[in-house]
Design a protein around this nucleic acid. Structure first.
Lengths: 199, 199
DNA sequence: TTATATTTGCTAACGGTGTTAGGTAAAATG
DNA sequence: CATTTTACCTAACACCGTTAGCAAATATAA
């Protein structure tokens, strides 16, 4: 069965060629200028061939969206594992989130629709699986040591995430009048406020 | 000169017809489905006529963007004027911002590129004129009464805005697992944290 | 009033997009 | 060897923003 195997591998080759070409284009010119036709042109196939591998352009975007989510979750998890104190964990995770988003602007844009086509949002994410769990765990632990151990963990998680997302998307959109270093200070400031308020 | 006057008024009529038709479409089907051709069709003119009134589609969007900004600023200002204590002002402004964004989703999306085409951001806003000033004023005053009157006002403003924007854009994208009432609690929670951290 | 100039609006096109119908030639299967 | 499946293509459909160029109506000047 060597022949069909080679066939399968070549199909896989085309598939990855589509993805890597698409990714390269996005890195170079942004999501808005990514087109099926350009991909087809670059991999030297005709346009309909793309549709043998992906049912639509959106399917390609979904692929990247989920990939980004996986990478982000991994980074956050690794950051968390380096420390044990829940407060430190929250700080480390905020840092990791921030760094990921800015180093992988394209992923973040796609994942959360920051300045993207197609507003529906969430479209390109199956679930926000790991991240919420990782954060809520630390919050729960941190809260248990305070005067109000009955505080709503889900609410606190949502606040945490909102702060992060707001900061990141303002930064990514380039709407920020604040320069690079100061931005990191804003992050620390906001997270500090969040932590103080846990108590 | 009654004739030319009537002419001018009729030109103005077409211009506003373009805008109101566009706005209606956006309200009904979102920004992504707004097209020059559909507008032309709806106002029963041919396509190039649109270009006698607006130099491009982007110019139309800019129009709405600035309009949204003006409305938001007004709402925030009104909210601020109702109270005198700076802390209360910050809370009131946060509330006003939140309410405006959710009641005028379309404006907010356009203004800050939440799930929109064309990422560049800020594209549709001349300046973020009034809002920043209004907020910074209250922050300055609030800080002066604390132990650290030397804190960076600009940084604090940026933190404040990030929290708001994060919350709002998560809510608008429908990515939020949190329901309506809880969302308001998240806002209050986050702003409380911010205020505690001013001290 | 007539001749010229300006405005107003149109059709038709250019180059771009995602997507699909339908056909051909090569390869795999019986 | 015949048949079916696969791989791939050309050409089209229905959209999009934008613009060139023309015809008719109107306003201005002689």
């Amino acid at each position: 069965m060597g022949i069909t195997e080679r066939r399968l591998k070549e199909k896989e080759k085309v598939r990855t060629a589509i993805l890597t070409t698409a990714w390269q284009m996005v890195k170079e010119e942004g999501w808005q200028s990514l087109s099926i036709r350009k991909i087809a042109d670059a991999i030297e196939y005709s346009v309909p061939v793309i549709y043998d591998y992906f049912e639509s352009k959106e399917a390609i975007l979904r692929q990247f969206g989920n990939e980004g989510l996986r990478l982000l979750t991994k980074k956050v998890q690794q950051a968390k594992e380096k420390v044990t104190d829940p407060i430190d964990q929250l700080k480390a995770m905020a840092d990791a989130y921030w760094n990921f988003a800015l180093k992988n602007k394209e992923y973040y844009q796609l994942m959360y629709g920051v300045g993207m086509a197609c507003c529906e949002g969430k479209k390109y994410l199956n679930e926000k699986d790991g991240f919420d769990y990782l954060v809520m765990e630390s919050i729960k632990e941190a809260i248990s040591k305070t005067k109000q151990p009955g505080a709503n963990v889900c609410l606190k998680y949502h606040t945490f995430w909102s702060i992060l997302h707001g900061l990141v998307s303002i930064k990514i959109m380039g709407n920020s009048p604040v320069s690079g270093e100061l931005n990191k200070m804003v992050l620390d400031d906001a997270i500090n406020g969040f932590i103080k308020n846990l108590d």
